[in-house]
């Protein structure tokens, strides 16, 4: 492996920050879910890079588990978005504040 692991982990950090910015700034519930996917994938990239560095399977096992959890999260998140869209027209995260206190 000629590319040092630092680069992969740095890329993972940048992607995670982009995803966090998307979650904080965007108001469309669907785009917030997409940004969460970016963050999960950034974490996966770091796991995979360290797994390769130490030549152990543990990081891969964790990454595959994260994929399964992300798939579950997408199913439940999109289910909530579709159910919300039946109840009300907008999907604005600023307006969806029923669960607040």
């Amino acid at each position: 492996m000629t590319v040092p692991v630092d680069w992969f982990v740095g890329l993972s950090a940048i992607l995670f920050a982009i995803g966090a910015a998307g979650v904080l700034v965007r108001r469309n519930a669907l785009v917030v879910l997409l940004s969460i996917e970016i963050m999960l994938n950034a974490g996966n990239l770091a796991l995979i890079a360290f797994s390769r560095t130490h030549a152990s399977q543990d990081g891969q096992v964790l990454a595959i588990t994260v994929m399964a959890i992300a798939a579950s999260e997408v199913v439940v998140g999109l289910g909530i978005v579709v159910a919300l869209s039946h109840l009300r027209r907008e999907l604005d995260t600023d307006e969806l504040s029923e669960l607040r206190g």
């Binding site: 992607l15 982009i18 995803g19 910015a21 998307g22 700034v25 965007r26 785009v31 940004s35 970016i38």
Partner: peptide, 8 residues
């Protein structure tokens, strides 16, 4: 990175 930036 470009894809992620375009997403948000």
């Amino acid at each position: 990175v470009v894809g992620a930036l375009r997403v948000i």
